[in-house]
Design a protein around this nucleic acid. Structure first.
Lengths: 120, 120
DNA sequence: TCAACATATGAATACTTGTTCATATGTTTT
DNA sequence: AAAACATATGAACAAGTATTCATATGTTGA
């Protein structure tokens, strides 16, 4: 007797070709997906999350963030650098002091959606 | 002559007490912020992002994900475990096959907001 | 211009994490 | 019951990363 015809030549198991083709055609470019992962990696640390929440309602200078969160000035500054790199915060200088604030509404939305998710 | 009165006893630099108190009063509990960081950490990897996007439109079995993304079955399974742990995907069994799908709309919203942010 | 202040940065270390390899679990068919 | 299939899991290694410590840059006032 004949064995079952194998449409996907040489592969084991059942056929996925249709689903695979559909996924591949709609999946965003690799570069985009890497950038997206990089963005979320910035949110993936509790120190940075704390900084973002601290900035939720008003701008703050580095010293205030440092005191409020009980971190060292160096650690805060390193994390602000990461947040700046991801364009999640903006800053303005006033004399020796530099004030940071949230860059745009995406930050707020992302935090809020994440919060909703974990509170379910 | 008198030195300037130091309201925040012993600290150097200018005063942050008001801002610090405000931030501290509004900042969510540490545990919540850790959970939030943990959630975003799941999004912080391009393999998992790819899996989530693959599941964007329809459920898929592990084999289909494996083929579509060109990963090993083991790697996919490990990442699905992480996604399951964060309740970002759900699954159902049909014989030997297990179909995964997105758990809720937060996943879609978070991905979409992230995408908007990096496309600016 | 010098001292004090505010913030930033580089290097080193301790910790976390994604993948691979080998194997285990669970399901269906013969 | 055994074999084939589909998925899950544990251990180990390589790669990435947050903090600390020391120091640098930039700004203001004396």
């Amino acid at each position: 007797m004949e064995e079952e015809l194998e449409l996907w030549e040489g592969e084991k198991g059942h056929d996925h070709t249709a689903a695979v083709a559909k996924v591949r055609s709609r999946l965003p470019d690799d570069g985009i997906l890497y950038d997206l992962a990089d963005l979320f990696r910035i949110f993936a640390d509790s120190s940075r999350i704390k900084i973002l929440y601290a900035l939720y309602e008003s701008e703050l200078c580095v010293g205030a963030i440092t005191q409020a969160l009980g971190m060292t000035q160096s650690a805060v500054s390193h994390q602000l650098r990461a947040l700046r790199g991801a364009k999640l915060v903006k800053y303005r200088r006033e004399g020796k002091t530099i004030f940071y604030s949230l860059a745009d509404d995406h930050v707020v939305t992302i935090l809020a959606q994440g919060m909703e998710h974990i509170e379910e």
